[in-house]
């Protein structure tokens, strides 16, 4: 498991360096392979005003998903839920103190998919990132 998480961190670190100046708030899903399945790192790239976000990942029908670490790195001031239901991974979180997440790349967590080796096979929809006034600031997601 440590190796799995470490691999995901390496992927995130690479993305951090590639996105040192975040131009656009977006959800970022990136592959980080592991022996027992495909690990997907979930990151939120933000310009510093994101107070909440939600998105849904469509998962192919025969793929099993482990969401136990989905919100593992969510900031402590945030509350959220992540669940695998109806072949979808549904993710939602917001700051209970209405305080924005720090600017830059914020790793949110990891999901593991069994029976899928490429994150690019996933589809993301219902992306919404909102500011402290509940205004939508982005509906973008990127899969790498």
């Amino acid at each position: 498991m440590k190796r799995f998480i470490g691999a995901a961190f390496v992927a995130t670190a690479a993305l951090l360096s590639a996105n040192s100046a975040v131009a656009q708030d977006q959800v970022l899903l990136s592959s980080a392979g592991s022996k027992s399945g495909s690990a997907i790192s979930i990151d939120l790239m933000t310009s510093g005003s994101a107070v909440g976000f939600n998105f849904i990942i469509n998962v192919p029908a025969d793929v099993e998903v482990d969401t136990s670490a989905c919100l593992k790195y969510l900031p402590k001031s945030f509350t959220g839920r992540c669940a695998f239901k109806d072949s979808e991974v549904r993710v939602i979180a917001f700051s209970e103190q209405n305080v924005a997440m720090k600017a830059g790349a914020n790793q949110i967590g990891l999901i593991r998919l069994f029976g899928l080796n490429d994150a690019k096979a996933l589809q993301v929809r219902n992306v919404e990132i909102v500011n402290s006034e509940a205004k939508s600031i982005s509906d973008k997601a990127l899969i790498q």
Partner: peptide
């Protein structure tokens, strides 16, 4: 969506 959660929170806090 999360906008509804934050809107409720905004009423509570602000």
């Amino acid at each position: 969506s999360v906008a509804d959660a934050v809107q409720a929170l905004n009423e509570f806090i602000n």
